[in-house]
Each structure stands twice: as C-alpha cells, then as structure tokens.
Simulated scan of single mutants.
Amino acid sequence: MGSGGHRRSTVAVKDALRELRNQLALLNHQVSAQLALKDVDLDCLELIARHGPLSPSALARRAGLHPATMTGILDRLQKGGWIVRERDPEAADRRSVAVRAVRGRTGELFRLYAGMNTAMDELCAGYSEHELALIAGFLRRATSAGQDATGALTGG
C-alpha cells in the first residue's frame, strides 16, 4: 500500500477514535444522569475508584482541574455517598486528606455499564489474542499521547 493508502488509513483511525470518544461521552453522560451526578463528577469518581486513595491535589492534577473546582466535585460526591475523605496516615502533614471510593456503591456503576461491557466482550471474542494485544497496545499508546498533549496545554 502506497503512502496515500497509509494516510487514508491513518485518517480513518483518527476519525474512528473521535467517533468512539463522542459515543463514550454520550454513554458517560447517560450514566451520570441516572446517578444524578455531573459528567465531571463521574470522571473524578472513576479516577478515585481506579487510582485511589488520592489526595485532592493529586486528583486535581490527574483530572486537569483547578483545586478549587475539585473541592466542589468532592463535596458533591461525598454528599451522594460515593466517596469518603479520610486523614492520610502516610502523610507527613497530619491535616492532609486522602479520598477513596465507597466500595459498596461501585456496583451501581458496574450495572449501568453492563451493556457496554457485554458488547465489548462479544466484540473481543471475534479477535485473536495477538490482535487484541495489538489493539490494547495501540489504545494505551493513544492514551499516553493524549496525556502528553493535555500536559502541553495545561503546562503540566
């Protein structure tokens, strides 16, 4: 395949990623609406569930949000019973707080994503292990490229 074909394929991949991003945003919007959360609250809850316990400042950095914005998000998540703020016993500063997801609540999230999860299992069943490894590697590298581009824009 000539360079024109490679360029067309590259454009097709980038277009497909944009469509996927848009579709996942719509799915997340529906999930957050059902949970009476804002989209950004759901994003932060996912970060906390995946990487927590985290300090509010570490979470703000990961989410690319201002610490003052993060305070409001954490207040809403705590009020909804999604997270708890705890004194961080590891920290040198005794006032420092760690935020963690409330384990019992994550079942509600899994239930709302179950349709997509099942669809992804069925989709992956049609690919070989080698192909899945290639796709997973590509997606990880695309995520990393996105993190770099975000860092360049935020100065982080």
Score class of each variant (00 low, 15 high):
residue 135 I to P: 10
residue 80 G to E: 06
residue 73 I to D: 01
residue 126 G to W: 06
residue 113 Y to N: 08
residue 68 A to N: 15
residue 57 S to W: 12
residue 113 Y to K: 08
residue 101 A to E: 06
residue 88 D to G: 00
residue 118 T to Y: 11
residue 16 A to D: 09
residue 71 T to G: 06
residue 25 A to R: 14
residue 40 V to Q: 09
residue 53 P to M: 07
residue 133 A to Y: 10
residue 89 P to Y: 03
residue 95 R to C: 07
residue 35 L to R: 04
residue 110 F to I: 03
residue 105 R to L: 06
residue 110 F to L: 10
residue 112 L to D: 01
residue 98 A to G: 00
residue 92 A to C: 06
residue 115 G to T: 14
residue 55 S to C: 14
residue 8 R to F: 01
residue 45 L to F: 05
residue 105 R to D: 03
residue 38 K to Q: 14
residue 58 A to F: 07
residue 97 V to Q: 09
residue 91 A to I: 01
residue 12 A to D: 05
residue 107 G to S: 10
residue 97 V to W: 00
residue 25 A to T: 15
residue 30 Q to G: 08
residue 91 A to T: 06
residue 67 P to H: 07
residue 28 N to C: 11
residue 87 R to H: 08
residue 109 L to I: 07
residue 105 R to C: 02
residue 29 H to G: 14
residue 40 V to C: 02
residue 7 R to D: 05
residue 13 V to Q: 07
residue 56 P to W: 00
residue 96 S to Y: 05
residue 62 R to N: 11
residue 104 G to M: 05
residue 116 M to G: 15
residue 108 E to V: 08
residue 28 N to M: 13
residue 14 K to M: 12
residue 49 A to L: 14
residue 100 R to I: 02
residue 74 L to M: 02
residue 97 V to D: 03
residue 91 A to M: 03
residue 43 D to R: 15
residue 74 L to K: 00
residue 101 A to W: 03
residue 105 R to W: 03
residue 47 L to R: 11
residue 72 G to W: 04
residue 107 G to E: 10
residue 18 R to K: 13
residue 80 G to F: 09
residue 20 L to R: 11
residue 136 A to E: 13
residue 72 G to R: 05
residue 49 A to C: 13
residue 105 R to P: 02
residue 17 L to M: 04
residue 17 L to E: 02
residue 116 M to Q: 15
residue 96 S to N: 09
residue 68 A to M: 12
residue 92 A to L: 09
residue 83 I to P: 00
residue 97 V to G: 05
residue 113 Y to F: 02
residue 71 T to I: 12
residue 78 Q to Y: 03
residue 100 R to C: 10
residue 5 G to S: 02
residue 82 W to F: 03
residue 9 S to I: 01
residue 53 P to Q: 07
residue 44 C to K: 08
residue 88 D to A: 01
residue 9 S to Y: 00
residue 78 Q to L: 06
residue 103 R to L: 04
residue 87 R to Q: 07
residue 61 R to N: 12
residue 41 D to W: 07
residue 40 V to M: 01
residue 72 G to S: 12
residue 71 T to M: 02
residue 114 A to R: 15
residue 20 L to A: 09
residue 18 R to T: 12
residue 126 G to V: 07
residue 69 T to A: 13
residue 128 S to H: 07
residue 43 D to A: 15
residue 86 E to M: 09
residue 60 A to Q: 01
residue 60 A to Y: 06
residue 6 H to K: 14
residue 82 W to Y: 08
residue 14 K to T: 08
residue 93 D to G: 02
residue 53 P to K: 01
residue 113 Y to D: 02
residue 121 D to Y: 11
residue 8 R to P: 00
residue 76 R to P: 00
residue 37 L to W: 01
residue 69 T to G: 11
residue 50 R to F: 14
residue 18 R to P: 10
residue 20 L to K: 08
residue 83 I to T: 01
residue 106 T to Q: 15
residue 71 T to V: 14
residue 121 D to G: 09
residue 51 H to R: 14
residue 36 A to K: 15
residue 61 R to H: 11
residue 75 D to Q: 14
residue 40 V to N: 05
residue 128 S to T: 10
residue 14 K to C: 10
residue 108 E to N: 06
residue 49 A to Y: 15
residue 41 D to S: 07
residue 41 D to F: 09
residue 8 R to D: 09
